[in-house]
Write a protein that binds this DNA or RNA. Structure first.
Lengths: 193, 193
DNA sequence: TATATATCTGAACGTGCGTTCAAAAAGTAA
DNA sequence: TTACTTTTTGAACGCACGTTCAGATATATA
């Protein structure tokens, strides 16, 4: 009974989300029609409404899933030194974001298309993620390992800097992602030391 | 004869650009209709076509103007020390961007709505701006004042970090823009030293 | 096999889009 | 005041939008 009669919603459902993710990232939420998403899935537009109540919710689901996965994947070992934790954060952030450019793009660009309520929910998740980095910085300051005037500002500065990698880094370019990550680790470490 | 007969296009023209700037920033290019822009100006939609050949060109003009103003305003005194030039760059970037949040927002968010040709033109201007910072970094490295592994990466990292201020800074908050700028100057300096 | 449920189609709904253009209005020059 | 130019209106164009839904189709259970 794990699967009800006549169902292949467990096939089409994910396809709808994948298609929406890809097309929203490429063209922007407002510029992508439900018909375009349906065509990408291989279905008529009406069928999409078996999987989302409306276009808005589709966007919100994508953003919420992205933030939830981000939070679930971000592990922080408070037992280690603040320096090691910061290095780990830099590596994690760059590689996690590099692996899902479409979701990252949408999460940053389509915030204004959320209802105020949904916007607040996504923002709360984002703040939670930022808090993870900030507590590393605070612990480092408390332990005398870091010198940071304002940990909140440093947090935002570091995250902006790291997320920026997604806008220009391309596989097969002059440097590998590992080399790029190493350089960012160096800059971040020095910035807070 | 500085003004041709019957003209008040020198009043309406700027109003069209201002309205488009405001509404594009608020709602996104695709979501803002020509009728909405016209309403903001106080005119019928058809009248807009005295001031732009089409909606696309309106967007491109806004972005090109923004980048042109940015380049014109960014002065770099090569006579000073690299450290002083870098400090000046940080202050300039933050204050210039703070003063025109709508234009900055559009310049970053609506790139994908440009035709390939117009995109290339805007990108060229952006690269020119980045080159300004990179030459400061290179000079600093050559003079032994900075230690940077890859000046291109450092350039992109610094710009991403500074531009990020626009996403969260609000007048009247915990810190003044001057205080924020001072902290960014510190982080940037340390990151490259 | 027959029955029941889940899924999808295809057409339709009202609405708003970017753009065009003839005619009207507003302004300037003589 | 008259002649002329610039600017704006207001209606119209064909098209695409998000969403709904009755009916058709596919799948699973018994």
């Amino acid at each position: 009974m794990a699967r009800t009669a006549g169902s292949h919603s467990d096939i089409t459902g994910p396809k709808v989300r994948e298609a929406a993710l890809k097309l929203f990232a490429r063209g922007g939420f407002a510029a992508v029609s439900m018909r375009a998403i349906a065509a990408e899935v291989g279905v008529q537009a009406g069928a999409l409404y078996n999987y989302t109540p409306d276009k808005q919710s589709l966007l919100f689901d994508l953003m919420k899933s992205h933030m939830t996965e981000l939070l679930a994947a971000a592990v922080d070992n408070a037992g280690q030194s603040a320096g090691a934790r910061l290095d780990a954060f830099v590596g994690f952030h760059i590689s996690f974001h590099h692996a899902r450019p479409d979701a990252v793009f949408i999460a940053y660009m389509e915030l204004r298309n959320l209802t105020p309520e949904n916007f607040a929910r996504v923002e709360a998740l984002r703040r939670q993620y930022e808090d993870g980095l900030e507590s590393i910085l605070r612990d480092g300051v408390a332990a005398g390992a870091f010198r940071v005037e304002d940990t909140k500002i440093a947090t935002l500065a570091i995250i902006a800097m790291l997320t920026g990698v997604n806008t220009w880094f391309r596989e097969g370019g002059r440097l590998s992602l590992e080399e790029v990550t190493a350089q960012y680790r160096g800059m971040v470490r020095r910035a807070v030391t």
